[in-house]
């Protein structure tokens, strides 16, 4: 096969998956529109949680002191990033959390026989935008306000670097937070694990700099949840060493590979339910 046909095939595959992603999103939205009340109550519940997150912002600005070497305005950027990321994570969260149910009831069967990556379908089949809306709005407002108030430069490098680390955070979120849900292939109930993971996510409510040294190392290198919401802000404030810059971009790749490996193991282990 020559290079040209290889690339055209790759391109075709790409557009196909993109089209499927679009369809999943469209269908999820259409299905949700059938239950409008659920959709709006999803928004209001998320607003409730948003209130909790914003109370941290209030505490930090009311205290008015530097925390972990960050000014209140700078901290607002970190919390804003955390809130925005929460919104993005919540888009795929229904897919993740329904995984164990799909395994238990054997509805995976009808997906395995499709000539599309199973992991792709499982990850994006149920997409929910209701929780994205309040979080994205609040998160972006906080980031922009903090950025402006702290008097940080708006240059091509600062903005594109910030966005690059946001994107790397999105990829890392996907791999890192899908992993615990994959345990449902082996365990009867992984509710406890899912609940603990959700709680770990909330550590990002505050910039990592307030935590102890060992906790920071743990959360950056072993279980790199801190990378997700801290690195965009740390990059902006020029607090990343070259090594951390590299690690912040390498970790998502590394964990994606790990996630793929565990997934293929998990599917081999799958014993379809129901006869």
């Amino acid at each position: 096969m020559n290079v040209k046909t290889y690339f055209s095939k790759l391109l075709h595959r790409f557009t196909r998956y993109f089209r499927l992603l679009f369809l999943f999103a469209k269908f999820s939205l259409m299905a949700q529109a059938e239950y409008r009340l659920n959709f709006f109550s999803g928004v209001t519940v998320e607003c409730g949680y948003l209130l909790v997150k914003l109370s941290y912002v209030a505490v930090v600005t009311m205290a008015g002191v530097n925390i972990g070497g960050l000014s209140p305005d700078e901290i607002v950027i970190f919390i804003g990033t955390y809130i925005l990321m929460t919104g993005i994570y919540m888009v795929v969260y229904p897919s993740f959390s329904s995984l164990s149910q799909k395994v238990r009831e054997g509805s995976l069967d009808m997906l395995i026989v499709k000539p599309v990556s199973l992991q792709f379908m499982l990850s994006f089949q149920n997409i929910d935008f209701s929780m994205l809306i309040p979080n994205a709005a609040a998160g972006i407002i906080l980031i922009v306000t903090g950025w402006y108030q702290a008097g940080l430069p708006v240059t091509l490098v600062s903005v594109s670097g910030f966005i690059l680390f946001l994107l790397s955070g999105v990829f890392l979120t996907y791999s890192l937070f899908l992993l615990p849900h994959l345990l449902c292939f082996w365990l009867v109930s992984n509710r406890g694990i899912a609940e603990i993971t959700a709680a770990v996510w909330d550590f990002n409510n505050m910039p990592q700099l307030i935590y102890g040294k060992w906790m920071q190392r743990l959360g950056t290198f072993i279980l790199p949840v801190f990378i997700i919401t801290n690195f965009p802000g740390l990059f902006l404030l020029d607090r990343l060493t070259p090594f951390l810059l590299f690690w912040g971009l390498a970790a998502p790749v590394l964990f994606f590979i790990l996630c793929r490996l565990v997934f293929s193991r998990a599917v081999k282990h799958y014993t379809s339910a129901g006869g």
Partner: peptide
Amino acid sequence: FSMISCIFPIIIQFFLWSAI
């Protein structure tokens, strides 16, 4: 399990107040 979701915010707030 729901106890655990109770303990984590305590840890976060402990660090926050200590830092402040």
